[in-house]
C-alpha cells in the first residue's frame, strides 16, 4: 500500500505517493529526477549515495523514502548557492579531488558534515571521516587536500596551495 510523504529536497517541498519499500536513493533519482546522487554498492559499503538528512550525512541506499517524511534533504544539486560553487565543490575542482566523478557527490556531502563538526581537521581525521566513501580513481590524496582546502575557505583562512607537490 502506498504512503503519501512530504519532504524538502534542496529547499523545495515535494509531496509524493511511494511504496514503503522505495529506497530513498531511488526516490531521489527516479521519482524526483535528480540523478546527481549515485548508487555504487547496495550494501552501504561505498557511500556514493550519501546525502544530508537534516544536515546529517546518510547513505540513501539504506534508508526508506518513508523514513525521510518531514525531513530536509540536501543533495549535490543543492549545495551551490547563487554566488557560485560551495567551498567543497571549489576544493575538489582546484585540487583535482575527482577523476571519474562518480563518488564525488557523496564524498562532498560527507565532507560538508565533517567540516561542520570539525572545521580544521587533521589528515588522519579526514581519512577516518571519509572511511564510509570509496573512491576507486584518486587514491584519496587529493580528496584529503580538497577537504583541507574547503576547510580553510570555510574558516576564512588563507587558502593552501593547489599546486601538485613532487619528490625532488
Amino acid at each position: 500500500m502506498k504512503k503519501e510523504i512530504t519532504l524538502k529536497i534542496n529547499g523545495e517541498e515535494f509531496t509524493k505517493e511511494v511504496e514503503p519499500r522505495t529506497l530513498l536513493v531511488h526516490f531521489i533519482r527516479e521519482d524526483i529526477g535528480m540523478t546527481g546522487t549515485h548508487i555504487g554498492c547496495d550494501t552501504s559499503s561505498c557511500g556514493a549515495c550519501t546525502i544530508l538528512i537534516d544536515g546529517k550525512s546518510a547513505k540513501s541506499c539504506t534508508i526508506l523514502a518513508v523514513q525521510a517524511a518531514g525531513k530536509e534533504i540536501t543533495t549535490v544539486e543543492g549545495i551551490a548557492t547563487t554566488e557560485g560553487a560551495h567551498p567543497i565543490q571549489e576544493g575538489f575542482k582546484e585540487n583535482h579531488g575527482l577523476h571519474c566523478g562518480f563518488c564525488t557527490p557523496g564524498m562532498m556531502l560527507r565532507a560538508i558534515e565533517l567540516l561542520e563538526k570539525n572545521p580544521d581537521p587533521t589528515e588522519e581525521e579526514i581519512r577516518w571521516g571519509i572511511s564510509g566513501n570509496l573512491c576507486r580513481c584518486t587514491g584519496y590524496n587529493n580528496i584529503v587536500k580538497s577537504i583541507k582546502y574547503a576547510g580553510a575557505k570555510l574558516r576564512g583562512d588563507e587558502l593552501p596551495s593547489t599546486e601538485p607537490e613532487f619528490v625532488e
Partner: peptide, 23 residues
C-alpha cells in the same frame, strides 16, 4: 601546465550524465 580540469564543473554540480542517468 597543471591546468584545472575542464570536465569537473559538471561532476561537482551533480550534472554528470552516467548510463543510469539516461532516461
Amino acid at each position: 601546465h597543471s591546468m584545472k580540469r575542464k570536465e569537473d564543473d559538471r561532476f561537482i554540480h551533480g550534472k554528470g550524465n552516467y548510463t543510469d542517468d539516461v532516461k
